[in-house]
């Protein structure tokens, strides 16, 4: 999937993946896509909850080799 920016939250625990995803989105344009990589399994539910509550769109989430990959489109 194409993306405009990448944020690697590997090794970070709650709430850093969410708080820093929010920060990473701050300087992006509406419609642009942020790729987030996380190793905290709690991020799977949290990233969806973040999208639901902020109006940003979680385009996809997947897991590969112990890493969770998210594509978040800025609203």
């Amino acid at each position: 999937m194409n993306f405009n920016k990448e944020f690697d939250a590997s090794g970070m625990s709650c709430p850093l993946p969410i708080v820093k995803t929010k920060k990473a989105l701050a300087d992006m344009e509406s419609g642009q896509v942020l790729k987030v990589i996380a190793t905290d399994c709690g991020a799977v539910k949290d990233m969806q909850a973040f999208a639901d509550q902020t109006g940003n769109i979680l385009l996809s989430n997947s897991e590969a080799g112990g890493k969770y990959i998210f594509f978040m489109q800025k609203k």
Binding site: C14, V19, K22, T54
Partner: peptide, 11 residues
């Protein structure tokens, strides 16, 4: 601090 920073991230 965890709840406050998260809530702020959620708007």
């Amino acid at each position: 601090f965890i709840l406050a920073s998260t809530a702020a991230a959620l708007g």
